[in-house]
């Protein structure tokens, strides 16, 4: 009787141990599998050619990722520039100023925003942001545009990453101890001075981590961007140009292009690039958040 219970316990322990190992292995496995599949193109072309050549003609064997990398950077940076200040101010307001009533309503609303599928953001982009860009914003700058632009994709992505940044930022502000604020008020500082000099300074690594998380979410987002960015394989030179980010390139072409091995390999290399960049930023933000936790203890 006793030995059976102990046997079960030991069996469960090893199964659970293996599943914990599985998480670590999965990261390595994804990296390894993508690398294996992209080795074919890495053997044929130099990295410099792949990253900096401005010609994408798969049928002629030319695989320059430059337009797509620039497309990704333009779209992501536009999104971050729009989203960061707005999310930062909203997070401060909700955690420091807002009356309890507003806070209790705003938080579920922001979580709701986080749960909306990306394809719905894409539909919204096509219905609202694209016509807005076409009819008002582009003509305002004296430009003619279809509306499917870096700007449209940037706005849609900015709205998508609001909840990510705001949610993490509020948590970080909360972890700053109340005594610190009290000490500052006792010295005669106003609420805003306290926020500026005490709360934000204390929370800075965490705020950076929140924004990095938002950035990497925007960086890899596929569906919404695919629907509104315009998908023209040419490096954009202004925010009113169309763009063709890396994730959209993979989504549009993968599967049907298996007959050309080099093309297949090139697309998986694009996936590998996304994976490595996100891996780097996740680990970076993780360390920043751990530092905040330690310093608040």
């Amino acid at each position: 009787m006793k030995s059976r219970r102990l046997f079960k316990d030991n069996l469960a322990r090893s199964i659970m141990w293996f599943s914990a190992i599985f998480c670590i292995l999965l990261v390595i496995l994804i990296g390894f599998a993508l690398f294996q599949r992209s080795r074919y193109i890495l053997a044929m072309k130099s990295l410099a050619d792949l990253f900096f050549l401005d010609s994408w003609h798969p049928l002629k064997g030319e695989f320059g990722f430059f337009p797509f990398i620039m497309g990704t950077l333009w779209v992501t940076c536009t999104a971050v520039i729009i989203s960061v200040p707005l999310s930062f101010l909203t997070a401060i307001y909700l955690s420091e100023y807002a009356p309890r009533m507003i806070r209790e309503w705003a938080k579920p609303a922001i979580d709701l925003l986080a749960g909306i599928p990306s394809v719905i953001y894409g539909v919204w982009g096509i219905l609202v942001i694209v016509p807005l860009t076409k009819n008002y914003i582009a003509p305002f700058f004296g430009r003619h545009s279809s509306g499917y632009t870096v700007f449209a994709a940037g706005v849609v992505l900015a709205v998508m990453i609001f909840p990510v940044i705001i949610h993490v930022s509020i948590e970080v502000f909360r972890s700053v101890s109340f005594e610190l604020r009290e000490a500052s008020w006792a010295l005669g500082a106003t609420k805003w001075q306290t926020i500026k000099h005490v709360v934000v300074r204390k929370a800075l690594p965490g705020i950076i981590a929140a924004n990095v998380l938002g950035f990497s979410r925007a960086f890899g987002e596929t569906m919404a961007v695919l629907m509104v960015a315009g998908n023209v394989p040419k490096a954009p030179s202004s925010i009113l140009d169309p763009a063709y980010p890396l994730p959209a390139l993979i989504a549009n072409n993968y599967g049907e292009m298996l007959s050309i091995p080099l093309y297949d390999s090139a697309l998986l290399m694009a996936a590998l690039v996304l994976f490595i960049v996100v891996l780097f930023f996740s680990i970076l933000s993780r360390f920043a958040l751990v530092r905040v936790e330690r310093s608040s203890e």
């Binding site: 998480c23 670590i24 999965l26 990261v27 994804i30 599998a33 993508l34 599949r37 998380l213 990497s216 979410r217 960086f219 890899g220 987002e221 596929t222 994730p247 993979i250 989504a251 993968y254 599967g255 697309l267 998986l268 996936a271 996304l274 994976f275 996100v278 891996l279 930023f281 996740s282 680990i283 993780r286």
Partner: peptide, 20 residues
């Protein structure tokens, strides 16, 4: 840490990896 990394991996990468 691995779970955090996996959480951030874009879904298109899971699509490509799943296909592999």
């Amino acid at each position: 840490v691995s779970l955090d990394v996996l959480w951030g991996v874009p879904s298109i990468v899971y699509g490509a990896f799943g296909f592999t």
